[in-house]
Amino acid sequence: MRLWLLGLMWVSGMWVAGIASAASPSYFMLQQRAYLSPHSVMQQIEKEFSGVIAEFDMDMQEGVLIYQFELINPLANAITRFEYRASDGKLLKQKAAKVTANDKGGLEAARLISLKHQTFSGLIALATQNHQGFLTDAKLDHDLGIGYLELKLLNDTGQYKLAFDIDNLQPLPLLKWD
Rank of each mutant, 00 (worst) to 15 (best):
K152R: 12
L135Y: 02
F164Q: 07
R111K: 14
A96C: 08
K139F: 08
L126A: 04
G122E: 02
N155I: 00
G147F: 00
G158F: 00
L149R: 04
D103T: 08
F82T: 00
L126Q: 10
L135T: 04
I146N: 11
D141Y: 02
R81M: 09
D143R: 12
I66N: 01
Q94D: 03
D156E: 14
D167S: 14
G106A: 13
T100F: 03
A125V: 07
G133Q: 00
N168G: 08
T80P: 06
Y84W: 09
F69G: 00
E150A: 14
L71G: 01
A96V: 10
A127P: 02
Q61E: 13
F120E: 00
L151D: 04
R85A: 11
L149W: 03
D143Y: 10
K95V: 11
T157A: 15
L154N: 07
D167G: 14
K161S: 15
Q129N: 10
T157C: 07
D156T: 07
F134V: 08
L154D: 09
L144N: 13
N77H: 13
N77L: 12
F134H: 11
L75M: 10
F134N: 09
S87L: 10
K98P: 05
D103Y: 03
K139R: 11
Y160W: 09
I124V: 15
K152A: 15
D156M: 09
K93V: 11
G145H: 06
L123F: 05
I79R: 05
S121F: 01
N155A: 05
L92E: 07
Q132M: 08
L144F: 13
R111D: 09
L135Q: 03
A110M: 08
F69W: 10
Q159Y: 12
K161L: 11
A125G: 04
D167E: 15
L112E: 13
K139D: 10
G63C: 06
D88L: 12
T100Q: 10
K152S: 14
Q129F: 06
N73V: 05
H117F: 09
I66Q: 03
L126H: 04
A138Y: 07
D88N: 15
L65W: 04
F164P: 01
L92R: 05
L169R: 11
G106H: 01
A78W: 02
D103H: 10
H117D: 12
L115I: 13
Y84V: 01
A110I: 10
V64W: 01
I166S: 09
L112S: 14
Y67D: 01
I113M: 06
S121R: 00
G133E: 02
A127V: 05
L115A: 13
L126T: 01
T119H: 04
G63V: 05
D59Q: 12
A76L: 12
F134I: 07
D59Y: 06
Q118M: 12
L149A: 09
Y67P: 02
N168V: 08
H117V: 09
E83T: 15
D156Y: 13
L140I: 12
